[in-house]
Design a protein around this nucleic acid. Structure first.
Length: 921
RNA sequence: GCUCUGGUGGUGGAAUGGUGGACACGAGGGACUUAAAAUCCCUUGGGCAGGAAUGCCUGUACGAGUUCGAGUCUCGUCCGGAGCACCA
């Protein structure tokens, strides 16, 4: 029998499915291990070879852990709500559910061919009502909770109400959108409507008016991580800042915990760093400046990390969007300020980013009093101060902040240096070093001493307080779209009220068209009877990240109708031990999921504070595009080596028409009508194509479909080759050329068992040399898999199989464990050979072979050697060496060893093949 | 600007501080074959010497340093990739 991968793979895939080989239940007798892939968004294009890279790695690890005796949870599902399906629906009128289901089926059939060991009974789809019931449930829990800063956790909103009744707003230290002050008496006097408004200020899921990213082309608001360089990540449409009332999640309350939690988890430094940047902690103080607009007095609180520079303040600046602008604009400046605000409002986010170098601003006509010096400084308004960070107002120290410096120079404001000896004639001195001067009681201190001294003074004198600020904002949670989870909220006389738990899931209604209404309301407003208990339901839907934030918990107990996850299932599976996925989710999903999990942890629904213990980011697989060169103005194409002799245009050519960079001329002519009569200028009778590494995409004609690889080489070859390409975490181009080597390896492996088509495995005892090959491999594979170095493991396999081939080893004692070792990587061929050896149970239930280091090691003897009468070595020589060879090896060492002592260089080189190791004493 | 990464043959990539380039692709040569496919063998960083076995020099972006010994550790420079960015 030959290695017929098609038959073998079909047979075992059917067998595994039929016998539910990978069905996983709680088994307290075994340690658990949870391996998770970031579930895919099923796009219409299907999978290309880049997508399964991470899935293959996680599958290998899962299978390895099973062989090691772990109970492994390894599920898969679909992130099925989202914009692309809906955009497609708007264009074609086809229901997003139909396209989504079709895409999911396509994904499933593609994944099934690769031989993954998923427990498909646990599949989840975020658009399934049975699933989004729990997304809605979690939202309601957040709606019904507040964040207690003194306890450092979320608590039920009823407890906050009790606190307010007891002692008003002072009775609780609650995270909020804006500071409020009211007494218990006032609280009790509030109407229901007023109470609702006040509580909204504290809820973890809340509706509030803030500046949001509005994308007119998509007709929806977007979260910060869905916007890049002023364009929407999906679709690339312009985004503008707009003040709107939106549902939001109080992620900012968790900023400190999200930051600290990073120290406890095993993620790459670079990914942790991305999250740290995104959270953006900075330590400083809030300081209150008394301000005067010519008519009334008003306090302005500013945030600064450099209180020490306060003696250098020469002006203050407000963000144009700040509420303070209205209050602090002096009557005589009103016209100019209005004009400036209009100018700022007109700018798109993109223009603002592009023009950060241009300095603009306007004087408000008001003045503030420096609380340290009593000095009067002018208040300006400028777009370089952001409304959303800190308090939207700053103290400007032009001598020691480059942005303030640029502003001062442009508008002729004074620059007062307060660090000894610094030169601020050309630029500001931003460094946190030097000795203070012109700074009253801070004079003579080093900057590092001055900062805490100044903060202490602020607190002691009651001028403000110590404050840690975060860049992380609350997540905007509503979308004016159809294809998402409906909010389980109805508006009862203007009061947002939760839908009762028994009525969840609140199903997505059918509507006649998937676009906004004529009056600009979200699509759900089209639904007939979109009401609850006679009141209108919320018409926004939840964003994509809602459904993906807790899916790893649902896999633990996917059919539970009473809870997101039962206590029992959660107590067993706890958290994800290994999570594999792309870095692109660093500031989105991976922040939201951690937040979501911490929230559920606070309320006691889950038992782990961090959801993902270890995280690996697989690199992207890029495409390797091919090019032909058309001579300008003709239909002649010139080969790569000769193209410099002509003026040419570079044209992408379908990589299916290219092999070894040589173009299939007939295929090329047939590919498009305009190429039918193409002529070629060849070199050595061939057309050589150029190439480049680019993103894998249809428009570059470089997409490689895994189905095609499975057809031509088999799933086992695909799996091995994807691992063989290079380190998992690195991005690398797909190059189909190298795949033959891996396929050849599998055939060689097959031929160790089969000779001339018949199984010929002997029961003879293995030799020392054969055992060495086996145990070297066991040791290597174990260490490499634990280190996720799969490419070197594949190489080690190739070496072992070559060595066994040379030894003509056909012994069961060696070959049987070899199939087990190979099974995580190439499960189909391993299963086939395992059965051929007479086993009746799947190789999945085999045990990973025991590693014996003594058998793997070189059989050596250690000899002491002295060199030059001074240096003493030990050298290890193969035991098999004859006495004469030992002597000559030692002598060779003596002559060629390289040892540098003082200035005298003596050469010492170890003779290859003779000396295994030498150790300097 | 700040932070994180990385830089090794024609290509993908190997190397607990200890023979640099494993393994594989590609290329060249050869065997088998009527032929092709498949399979197998040899050569393959660069340079020099030799009829040959082989020997010598040089080589991990660049420059210093630590070390008996550096692709690996330290500092500086250059060049990629990624993230954040008027965040006070």
């Amino acid at each position: 029998m030959d290695y017929n991968f098609k038959e073998i793979e079909k047979k075992w895939q059917a067998y595994w499915a039929e016998n539910q080989t990978f069905k996983t239940e709680i088994d307290p007798s075994k340690p658990k291990y949870y391996v998770l892939d970031m579930f895919p968004y099923p796009s219409g294009a299907g999978l290309h070879v880049g997508h399964p890279l991470g899935y293959i790695a996680s599958d290998i690890y899962s299978r390895y852990k099973r062989l090691k005796g772990f109970q492994v949870l390894h599920p898969m599902g679909y992130d099925a709500f989202g914009l692309p399906a809906e955009q497609y629906a708007i264009q074609t009128g086809q229901h997003p559910e139909v396209t989504t289901t079709n895409n999911i089926n396509r994904y499933r059939s593609q994944m099934d061919r690769i031989g993954f060991s998923y427990d498909w009974d646990r599949e989840v789809r975020t658009c399934d009502p049975g699933y989004y019931k729990w997304t809605q449930w979690a939202f309601l829990k957040m709606f019904g909770s507040w964040y207690d800063r003194s306890a450092g956790k979320a608590r039920p909103i009823e407890e906050l109400v009790q606190a307010f009744e007891r002692g008003g707003s002072r009775a609780a230290d609650a995270a909020c959108s804006e500071d409020m002050a009211f007494s218990a008496k006032q609280w009790k006097a509030y109407s229901d409507r007023e109470k609702s408004d006040v509580l909204m200020n504290y809820r973890i899921a809340y509706q509030g008016e803030t500046a949001v990213n509005w994308c007119a082309d998509l007709g929806t608001v977007l979260a910060n991580d869905e916007v890049k360089d002023g364009l929407s990540v999906r679709g690339g449409f312009p985004v503008e800042q707009k003040k709107m009332k939106q549902w939001q999640l109080r992620v900012s309350a968790y900023a400190g915990r999200l930051l600290d939690g990073l120290d406890k988890i095993d993620w790459t430094d670079s990914l942790k760093e991305i999250q740290r940047n995104w959270i953006g902690r900075s330590e400083g103080a809030e300081v209150v400046f008394k301000c005067w607009n010519g008519v009334t007095e008003h306090d302005v609180t500013i945030f600064t990390t450099r209180v020490d520079t306060i003696f250098g303040v020469t002006f203050m600046v407000l963000a144009p969007e700040s509420d303070l602008v209205d209050i602090l604009t002096a009557p005589e400046c009103k016209a100019e300020v209005e004009a400036y605000l209009a100018y700022v409002r007109k700018k798109t986010e993109r223009e603002r980013i592009a023009e950060t170098k241009t300095v603009t601003g306007v004087f408000s006509g008001s003045y503030g009093i420096n609380p340290f010096t009593g000095e009067k400084v002018p208040i300006w308004i400028s777009e370089y101060v952001l409304a959303g960070y800190g308090t939207g107002a700053i103290m400007a120290v032009p001598a020691h902040d480059s942005r303030d410096y640029a502003f001062a120079r442009k508008f002729g404001l004074p620059v007062v240096p307060i660090i000894e000896g610094c030169d601020v004639s050309q630029e500001s001195f931003d460094a946190k070093e030097g000795r203070m001067c012109n700074s009253g009681f801070l004079n003579g201190l080093e900057v590092k001493e001055a900062i805490p001294a100044a903060i202490d003074y602020v607190e002691k004198e009651g001028l403000g307080r110590r404050k840690v600020n975060y860049r992380l904002r609350d997540a905007i949670f509503s979308r004016q779209r159809y294809w998402g989870e409906p909010f389980p909220i109805y508006h009862k006389d203007g009061i947002p009220t939760p839908v009762a738990f028994e009525d969840l899931p609140l199903r997505l209604p059918e509507i006649d068209a998937f676009k906004p209404t004529e009056s600009g309301e979200p699509p759900l407003a089209r639904a007939k009877n979109w009401t609850y208990r006679g009141y209108p339901l919320e018409t926004s839907t939840m964003p994509g990240f809602a459904g993906s934030s807790a899916y790893y918990l649902r896999y633990m107990d996917p059919h539970n109708e009473q809870a997101l996850v039962s206590k029992e299932a959660n107590a067993y599976w706890r958290d994800v031990d290994l999570y594999i996925g792309g870095t692109e989710h660093a500031t989105g999903h991976l922040i939201y999921s951690r937040f979501w999990n911490k929230f559920l942890y606070d309320l006691g629904y889950v038992c782990e504070d961090e959801p993902f213990r270890k995280l690996i980011n697989q690199g992207m697989i890029q495409g390797r595009s091919s090019f032909v060169y058309r001579v300008v103005g003709t239909n002649r194409f010139v080969s790569l080596g000769l193209k410099d002799q002509y003026e040419t245009t570079e044209i992408h050519v379908d990589i299916n028409l290219v092999r070894n960079d040589r173009l299939d001329l007939a295929g090329f002519k047939a590919s498009r009508p305009e190429y039918a009569d193409a002529e070629f200028i060849l070199e050595n009778g061939e057309y050589v194509c150029g190439w480049a590494v680019e993103k894998m995409s249809k428009s570059m004609f470089n997409v490689v479909n895994p189905d095609k690889i499975c057809d031509d080489y088999g799933a086992d070859t695909l799996r091995l080759y994807e691992m063989f390409l290079g380190p998992l975490e690195q991005s690398k181009p797909w190059d189909t050329q190298g795949i033959d080597g891996v396929h050849r390896f599998l055939r060689k492996f097959w031929r160790l068992f089969y000779e001339d088509g018949t199984l010929s495995v002997s029961e003879e005892k293995a030799s020392r040399a054969e055992l060495k090959v086996l145990h070297k491999l066991i040791g290597k594979e174990q260490a490499d898999i634990e280190a996720f170095s799969f490419n070197t493991t594949v190489s080690a396999f190739m070496i072992a199989v070559n060595e066994l081939g040379e030894l003509r080893c056909r012994k069961r004692e060696i070959l049987e464990p070899m199939t087990v070792l190979l099974s995580p990587f190439a499960p189909h061929i391993a299963e086939e050979l395992w059965r051929a050896l007479g086993h009746t149970e799947s190789i999945t239930y085999a045990r990973f072979p025991e590693f014996d280091p003594a058998l793997a090691a070189e059989d050596t003897v250690t000899y002491p050697v002295s060199f030059n009468g001074k240096m003493r070595f030990t050298i290890d020589l193969p035991k098999s060496l004859a006495a004469a060879e030992v002597e000559s090896s030692i002598r060779a060492l003596d002559q060629t060893a390289r040892y540098t002592e003082g200035k005298q260089v003596v050469k010492v080189i170890v003779v290859p093949g003779k000396i295994v190791n030498f150790v300097l004493k």
